[in-house]
């Protein structure tokens, strides 16, 4: 049960939200939005790979072709 991936997502989420607040304080609103966007994209890529693994597993177990 590779739990580290889920905790990686959680860590990234916290990091991004903290950095977003810091950038907002330094009134660099655009960078903050870009950073959040980049964070969401990175995490989305990780989750989509996980979904791909899930689908191949379901397909093999349930013969859902």
């Amino acid at each position: 049960m590779n739990v580290d991936l889920v905790f990686k997502i959680a860590g990234l989420g916290i990091l991004i939200s903290v950095l977003h607040i810091i950038l907002k304080q330094a009134d660099k609103e655009e960078q903050a939005q870009m950073l959040t966007l980049a964070g969401v994209v990175v995490v989305l890529i990780m989750v989509v790979q996980l979904i791909g693994e899930l689908y191949s597993m379901v397909r093999s177990v349930f013969h859902l072709f």
Binding site: M1, N2, V3, L5, V6, I9, A10, L12, G13, I16, S17, G39, V40, V43, L44, M46, V47, L50, I51, E53, L54
Partner: peptide, 12 residues
């Protein structure tokens, strides 16, 4: 990120 986290754990 909360949604992605829930999704990640659900898949796991």
């Amino acid at each position: 990120f909360a949604v992605l986290l829930a999704l990640g754990f659900g898949i796991l």
